[in-house]
Write a protein that binds this DNA or RNA. Sequence first.
DNA 1: ATATACAAACCGACTAGTCGGTCAAAAAGC
DNA 2: GCTTTTTGACCGACTAGTCGGTTTGTATAT
Lengths: 213, 213
Amino acid sequence: MEGQKLKQTVKERILDTALDLFQQKGYHGVSVDEIVDVAKTSKGGFYHNFKSKDALLYEIHDIFISHVLAETKIACKTHSNPIDQLCAMLYAFTNVFDVYNRHITVFYDESAYLQPDYKANIKQKRTEYRRLIEGVIEEGKQSGHFRSEISTRITTMAIIGMVNWTYKWYWRNGELSMEQITLYFNDMILRGIVTEQGFNESFAKQYIQSKVV
Amino acid sequence: MEGQKLKQTVKERILDTALDLFQQKGYHGVSVDEIVDVAKTSKGGFYHNFKSKDALLYEIHDIFISHVLAETKIACKTHSNPIDQLCAMLYAFTNVFDVYNRHITVFYDESAYLQPDYKANIKQKRTEYRRLIEGVIEEGKQSGHFRSEISTRITTMAIIGMVNWTYKWYWRNGELSMEQITLYFNDMILRGIVTEQGFNESFAKQYIQSKVV
DNA sequence: ATATACAAACCGACTAGTCGGTCAAAAAGC
DNA sequence: GCTTTTTGACCGACTAGTCGGTTTGTATAT
C-alpha cells in the first residue's frame, strides 16, 4: 500500500526523514532546516512535535531499544531451554533489523551526542538487554548445555558484537538475507559454546546444520 | 620516561588532545577552539599543522587503519597455515587495541563525517583488511582446516564484528585484559569453524583450550 | 471564542577558517 | 666571529556564515 505515505502525520514524516538523513550524514551532518525542508514542513511544525533536536535523537534511540527489548523478552519467555532461547533472541533481533535498519545506525553511531539524562535512560535499557543474554548463557552453563569454562561476559559481548556489527555491512536487497545470516550465526555461535550434551539435545539439531566427524 | 610528554611537538599535542575529546564527545561535539585551548596552543598553531578540522579527522582514521593493516599483513606472512594465521591476525588487532583505543572509537563512530575523497581512501584500506581475513578463511576451507559449508563472507564479518565490538565495552584497567578476551575469542571462533581434521592439527591445540567429549 | 497545528521571519550564539603580525633560530654575507 | 636576512612555527583578534531555537502570524476545527 502506497497510501501509507500519504496518510503520514507531520511527526511521522519528520521521524522518517530524520532517520534517512541521520543515517546518511550523521546527526550533526544534518540541520533542522534540512529536515523540515525534505519532510515538507516547517520549523514551527518541527518544534510543535519535538521539544528539541536532541529530543528527536532520543526518540529514535528509544523506539529502537524499547522494541528490541520487548521482542527479546518475548523470545526468552516463549522457550524453556537455553539453546532455543538464545537462538530465538537472535532471530528476534534479525526481525527487528530489517525494519529498524536506519534506527540501528543512528543508535550505535550517534549515541555520543545524546544529552546526559537521555543517555542514562538509554544506557539502562541496553544494560537490561545485555543481562537477558547473560542470563541465558549463565543458565545454559548451569544446565550443562553450554561449556562451563566459557566466560559469560565475554561470550555475551562476542554474540552481541557479531550480531550488531551487521549494521555496518548488511544491505537490504543484497545477496544475503538477514534470515540466512542469522542461520550461519546461530550455527557458529552454538558450535563455539555448546557441550557434547547440549549438541545431542534434539532441539539443537535445527540450529547446528551438520557435524563433520 | 615522563620526559616524553614534555618533548611532544604542537602537532602531537593537538592529535593527542583531539583523540581524547573526540572519543568523549564526538567529532562535532568538540570545536577547534576547545582543542587548541586544551592542547595549549592556538588557532594559528592548529591551522599551521592541519589543513582543516576534516584533515585532522582523516589523519586519525589513517593512522589507525594503516597500522592495523600493516600489523595484520605481518601476522599473515609469518605463519604458514590458516589456523595460525587467523589467530595471529586476531592477536595483532589485540595489540593495536590497547594503544589505539581512542583511534578506534573515532574510527568507527565518526567516519560518517569524513569528506568524500578522504572517505574513499579509508574505505579502500578497510576493504583490503577484510580481504586479508577472507583470504585466510578461503584458504582454510580449501586446505580442509575449516568446514567447507561455512560462508566466507559471513564468517569474516562475524569475526570482524566480534573483535571490533570490543571497543564499545572494553575498558583498560578493567577486570578483563585484551589478552584474555582474545584467548576466548580464538577458542570460540575456531570451535565454530574448524573441521575435525583442523582440530586435530597440533598447532590448533594452543588456541582451543579443551574439548568436552 | 479558543485551542490546535502548522508556517515564516527572525535572533543570538557559536563555529570553522583567515590573516596580519611576532619571534626565535637557521642561513647567508662579510 | 659577528651581523644581517630569511625562514617557518606559532599567535589571537576577526569574519562570514550556519545552526538550534523563538516569536509572531494564520488557517482550521470544535
